[in-house]
Amino acid sequence: MKKKMRFWLDGPYLIWTAAFIIIPLLMIVYYGLTDKNGAFTFHNVMEMGTPERLKALVLSLLLSLLATAICLLMAYPLALILNKMKTGATGFITTIFIIPMWMNSLLRILAWQTLLERNGVINQFLGMLHLPKLYIINTPYAIALGMIYDFLPFMLLPIYNALQKIDVNVVNAAYDLGANRFQTFWKVIFPLSLPGVISGITMVFVPALTTFVISDFLGGSKVLLIGNVIEQQFTQVGNWNVGSGLSLVLMIFILISMAIMQHYDKDMGEETTSL
């Protein structure tokens, strides 16, 4: 009886996991490690070694690191301010941050394209004020801007969550034991918020590393990220084997970054903030 119950409860989840996570993953591994005739090869993985693709990979890593760092620098103080505010005001501001997420991210990036274009809204405005124009469309800066804009909420919310979980008396205890505001922040508040910082970093870094939409719209065809390179293999070249091989390489980078994050998380002796 109990076993039957378990099956019905677990079953749908297991089927879902198998159909949409495990099987596709195995297919990528299969395609990535075979050639067109189905023979085993490392050729597809080695395809990453061309100068053009290495350049795209390095640029992707740099841009996603930059976007993650800036998101962190912007989100942390904001989360601190939100945490200090009264409940009503906090709800309002978090809603403002979440509302854009209700809109399609493609549309939001398109909006940035319109804003940043050579004769776009921003430059027309700057022209009216006789100020020097801003030519960052189709450069890595525009892509970084798009990433920061798109992923900032994913940094803000986990940090805010983690700060909210800190018992106000723990902070008071630090003051009580003689710590000033600065010491209290660095010795108590920040370490206790690290689980949130780490999930925020993961949730910004990973999608930023793999994005191809943002670089497509804001980088034109001039700036290629590793996401674009992989996308082209599937949509334009039609070579699933090379595309899968490159994906595997990218996956390894993501796994490494997650392992580093996990390591820091464990160091702090705190449970990971679940989101």
Partner: peptide, 28 residues
């Protein structure tokens, strides 16, 4: 509070969860 010569034992302990017992005691 950090300038007062009194210390508080809070409700629900309020220990620093990220520090060992020795580090907790050594904080002040």
């Amino acid at each position: 509070p950090n300038k007062r010569q009194l210390n508080t034992v809070f409700q629900k302990y309020a220990l620093f969860a990220h520090m060992s017992i020795a580090e907790n005691i050594a904080f002040g």
